[in-house]
Simulated scan of single mutants.
Amino acid sequence: MAKLSYARPKLRGVTNFEAAEVRRLRTEEHLSVREIRARTGLGRNRVYELLRGVPPSERTRRPNAKDDLRAQAVSLRATGLSVPEIARRLAVSRSTAYLWVRHLPLDRDAEQERQRRQAHSKAMTEARWSAHRRTRDEAQAETHAAAGRTVGQLSDRDVLLLGAIAYWCEGTKSKPWRRDDHVEFVNSDPGLLALFLRFLELSGVDRATPTYRVSIHESADADAATEWWAEQLELPRDRFQHPNLKKHNPATARRNTGEGYRGCLVINVPRSRELYWRIEGMIAELFRSVAVRER
């Protein structure tokens, strides 16, 4: 059985004169393929074969709808944008953007390249984890709502117990080697401080009785912090003492800085020995109750 051949047939019947004439019509008269065929009587494929390697003239070029985008791509490349950035700006594929600007290599210095890679890595990470974070945040909000419903309406007894526990965690306590039976509470959380102030009110201590003092780093605005605490917790401004300024160490990488940093608020209750004893009694009974249930 004879082997089939798919080789392209050679052009036959075309003289050197015809070949030269076809090229002349293209280069000198700037005719299109259709016009050359009409002039010479040759077929379309033969004309294309004879014109191989001869670029078409500007007159015969069809206008390209993306010529404006190509010009914009070249301009953006000149500003230092990468191919993906150009493609995103012009809403074209990366392959198209590359074809338009491949003759214009980027010339970035090391710092620019580092910043570009860092920004790209951040964008990729955000895209990869955004859906996960959204799911996580929705689950967190749902859990918060469910847990909040278990609290219900707090009674005065509940607030007294919570206040005593809060003080035992964050307040100053008397030690066997240092007898100091007075109530002093220090914290930076407005919610916890509000809870303790409510505990004091239920214990018969009005907000005008304690003294208040802001403890804050010397690099912060102590006066502004004092005003903020007084307004936030509705405290009498004349009961505030001079702020306690903590020495600032520039070598320490502190994160509690900026406008949101307002230090800690110190609540000092004068003549509070009996109140301290009551807190001790509540805490001792709480611990005893827990131990009895465990047994």
Rank of each mutant, 00 (worst) to 15 (best):
R102G: 13
Q115I: 15
V101K: 03
R116A: 11
D137N: 03
Q115G: 06
G152L: 06
A147T: 13
S155C: 05
V101Y: 02
Q112D: 12
P105I: 12
E111D: 08
D156Q: 08
Q115L: 11
L104G: 13
A127N: 07
L99K: 08
D109H: 07
A91K: 05
V92T: 02
S93T: 06
A119E: 09
R114L: 10
L106F: 03
H103P: 12
L90E: 01
E113C: 10
H144V: 10
H144M: 07
L104N: 12
R94S: 03
G148Y: 04
Q118G: 14
R114C: 09
Q153V: 12
V151K: 07
R157H: 13
A127M: 10
G163F: 00
E142Q: 11
D158Y: 07
A123Q: 14
A91D: 03
L160H: 01
R114P: 05
E138Y: 05
Q115H: 04
A119I: 13
A164N: 02
I165S: 04
T96M: 13
E126N: 13
D158I: 09
A127C: 09
L161I: 04
R116V: 15
H144L: 08
A147K: 14
L104A: 15
R134L: 11
L99E: 11
T125R: 03
R108V: 14
T143V: 07
L160Y: 00
S155T: 07
A131H: 02
A131M: 05
V151W: 08
Q118K: 10
L106Y: 01
W168C: 02
E142V: 09
A127K: 04
I165L: 10
R134V: 13
A145L: 06
E138V: 08
R108N: 11
R117W: 07
G152V: 03
V92G: 00
W129C: 09
D109L: 06
D158S: 04
Q153R: 06
A164E: 00
A146D: 05
V159Q: 00
